[in-house]
Design a protein around this nucleic acid. Sequence first.
DNA 1: ACAATAGTGTCTGTGAGACAGTATCGA
DNA 2: TCGATACTGTCTCACAGACACTATTGT
Lengths: 223, 223
Amino acid sequence: MLTDYDPSQYKKMSVAVDLLVFTIEEDRLKLLMIEREEEPFAGKLALPGVFVGIDETLDAAAKRGIREETGLKDIYFEQLYTFGDVKRDPRMRIISVSYMALVPLEKLSFKAGKRTKDAYLVDVEELLASDRSVAFDHKKIISYARWRLANKVEYTLIAFHLVPEGFTLPNLQKVYEILLGKPLYKANFRKKISEFIEETEFQTSGDAHRPSRIYRLKKEYVK
Amino acid sequence: MLTDYDPSQYKKMSVAVDLLVFTIEEDRLKLLMIEREEEPFAGKLALPGVFVGIDETLDAAAKRGIREETGLKDIYFEQLYTFGDVKRDPRMRIISVSYMALVPLEKLSFKAGKRTKDAYLVDVEELLASDRSVAFDHKKIISYARWRLANKVEYTLIAFHLVPEGFTLPNLQKVYEILLGKPLYKANFRKKISEFIEETEFQTSGDAHRPSRIYRLKKEYVK
DNA sequence: ACAATAGTGTCTGTGAGACAGTATCGA
DNA sequence: TCGATACTGTCTCACAGACACTATTGT
């Protein structure tokens, strides 16, 4: 490939990274979105994103974007898909490499439902079910990410990234149920994940019922 | 996102599509590669690829590339991953969106092992196991594609794209075995895929043993 | 004692794995 | 008849699904 490169023939384009930062808030899957202030799509919700620098790796751009939007340095993220429709952005040709990030709510400096800057935590199912318009082709991207997330829950340990380092099993199960969109049987769920976790000495307290033991992911499975 | 776009700050770059056209030849997984004639990496094997036109969708560019390299219009392909290391190409910054395509050998105008133009069918396992150098970061891309292919075989019907429309079960099983890298039990394999296929009236003939029935994928599962 | 949630034991059905057997062609 | 490969029947075992039971807290 690339043997016959002719700069005059192939115009260059801009490459951006779009970020899908997911978290769980009040037993709902939420996505970090911003309200656009300028045209096009002023007033609409959009995914946060950054342009990729000429000397910057895609992963590095994603990391930088996450840092700028959340203040967080070391959260889990992975490349999702690259969207390259010609008219995605009415102003110019932009290739968008989407990245999905997962973070437990505790790490986000967000209050429930409240805004920080122009950023909101948007209920994903609600957004996708509604006919509310979203900037650019971002609704399509969100829809794809939601699908991929549900898929990967089944054959990876990705759900653990949505939960604090120390977690209870009822807590973790709830996350699985939210991502899968269906209830699970307690006993079966525990059997399935038991090989990946280990007890800690801690447990919850203060609730008017039996306390719940705190577990953590075994070291060998921590990314 | 994209609210603060400043053209002087973010330089544009080139976007290319790299193609991984897989097929099965002589019971081996093969990949279509070309021998580079120019620097850099002259004489090395490389993935075929094309630059994405300014008014061209990523998928459209992939389709065009496949057409140019194989002469084929309607074969299965899917986007794989986007590679954006800064020094991938020593000449300039190129973002490479990789696409994986699958085609039965019968559709390719290739003779076993022989070249057409500068194109070869390269044994994938052999290439990956060897320390033979490959142009750019293409070895990494191939390695990733090989992994993804093995994965998707297990939970999709992707293997059917490597086999003609009418196929025998021993034939299909062999493809699964090649992709999975392990032998399968006949009876179990048949039970597993029986729901997706249907008999035709045809069978093989001429061999010194019991003929093999020709099957096809049920309509509802085609693509 | 009771409400509420945490946690466990076990039956069942489904499906993958393993292997042995039967079927049908050309020579 | 025989060699070779196509095709089928069935046993076993692991595991997901389903459900009932026990455990431990605060009030």
